[in-house]
Design a protein around this nucleic acid. Sequence first.
DNA 1: ATAAAAACATGATATTAATCATATTTAAGA
DNA 2: TCTTAAATATGATTAATATCATGTTTTTAT
Lengths: 143, 143
Amino acid sequence: MLSNSSKYALKAVLYLALHTDEINKIMVKDISERINVPKAYIAKLLQELSKRKIISSTKGPKGGFYLNASNRNETIMQIIEVIDGKKKLESCILGLEDCNEQKPCPIHRLISPSRSKMITLLETKTINDLATDLELNKTFLPV
Amino acid sequence: MLSNSSKYALKAVLYLALHTDEINKIMVKDISERINVPKAYIAKLLQELSKRKIISSTKGPKGGFYLNASNRNETIMQIIEVIDGKKKLESCILGLEDCNEQKPCPIHRLISPSRSKMITLLETKTINDLATDLELNKTFLPV
DNA sequence: ATAAAAACATGATATTAATCATATTTAAGA
DNA sequence: TCTTAAATATGATTAATATCATGTTTTTAT
Ligand code: FES
Ligand code: FES
């Protein structure tokens, strides 16, 4: 469903949501340790997210990664899109070129409603929404 | 979501459902051509499915692969399980060791109901069900 | 100005999944 | 019973992901 890279990216961004802001930044070494993902690997992902303005960063001493208010309103899907590309979730489950109601493959109707629901949720929920759940201990983000 | 291998396997089994029985078998070379999957690749998958009794086969001249009545009542999920393993669909989308309601990850509640629905359907629908839809032109299986 | 600390850019290696190849076994038919 | 046509078993190669490494640029503080 999601690549390892997307999972890691999502974890990292949620960690940033809980522990950073414009004042309190965190560097890749610390993120890596806290979410238990290899430093060089998560660094590459964070750099990509930063380039696409999903997260923020500043170089140099006292620099690091963080989320600003605008970043917090990005949706889950935007992260997934940057890392995995959009088609991955929407493509035909049997690998048909294009997935639609007019010429559905044998399992299209079985999974399409559930999948659409899922996609809509991922497109709607923001980083902030998930961070709030975590803060209220409604959900958990183990290492 | 599904591996390439599972997709191919599913296509192949559906093709068998439409075009074979105990009398009329088909050999791997022909399946390969009709579903547009490399011969050596689909051969390996069919052999695995045959070993697990999801499909039937006989060796030697006039031999080939086919579905018997019992095969037709296998569910979609059984095919996926043989090829991909069950955990692939049920595992936590963030890669958490175990996915459950007690300690849900931040997106568990977003996707869990849809995913459960999907899994139930895959566990319920049989090869025969899908083949019937195809025969009635309710669904399509392009190459 | 300069040194140090951080992200950034780029590329190399390792692991896994996808694909291909081939020798062996089994069954049908002459 | 011998030849041939098929699946079967096993392994090799290739391609895609995941992982790691390192030099470059920017910024802060001396
Ligand atoms: S056509 Fe296959 S999932 Fe939509
Ligand atoms: S705990 Fe992550 S999807 Fe269930």
